[in-house]
């Protein structure tokens, strides 16, 4: 368990990750962004499908999370609201399979680089490290 390095996939929109991506991997590392979080940048989280998040679990993710604009200030009006609903559907699906729904999460953050962007990754890292490997991997906790 102590050797467990979670595989966490983050899906963030162009706007919330703008500065993060400008900083590059070295900058992120300096700011404390966990190495095990893989960033997937998409034009708008409203484009993200439920199946994309489920496929991440099929590919071996221990958790997935989405970072979109504030609910009432999405660059594309309702994209982040749609993403939140889809994350909700993934949480429900995980519960149906008796897997912790907390392995999927939605964060609404302001545009640009904020300590909150790093904090979301750190929170997920902490959460998943405590939970252990995802049961879909068929590994012992």
């Amino acid at each position: 368990m102590s050797n467990f390095t979670p595989d966490i996939r983050a899906y963030c929109c162009h706007y919330t990750s703008q500065q993060t991506c400008a900083d590059g991997p070295e900058g992120l590392k300096k700011d404390g962004f966990p190495d095990c979080v893989v960033l997937n940048r998409i034009p708008c989280t409203g484009k993200l499908q439920i199946s994309t998040l489920l496929k991440a679990f099929e590919d071996g993710a221990d958790a997935v999370y989405v970072v979109g604009c504030p609910e009432d200030k999405c660059h594309n009006l309702m994209g982040s609201q749609r993403a939140a609903k889809r994350v909700g559907a993934v949480k429900k699906a995980l519960s149906e399979l008796s897997v912790e729904p907390e392995r999927a999460e939605m964060f609404h953050l302001e545009r640009g680089f904020h300590p909150e962007f790093v904090a979301a990754a750190v929170e997920m890292h902490k959460r998943v490290s405590a939970m252990g490997p995802c049961p879909f991997k068929g590994e012992e906790k």
Binding site: E58, E96, L97, P135, F136, K137
Partner: peptide, 19 residues
């Protein structure tokens, strides 16, 4: 089509979990 994709994923994940 979209729901097929989701359900197929859930079946694969459920099966994996059950070994």
């Amino acid at each position: 089509e979209r729901e097929v994709e989701i359900l197929a994923s859930l079946i694969r994940l459920g099966s994996k979990k059950e070994g």
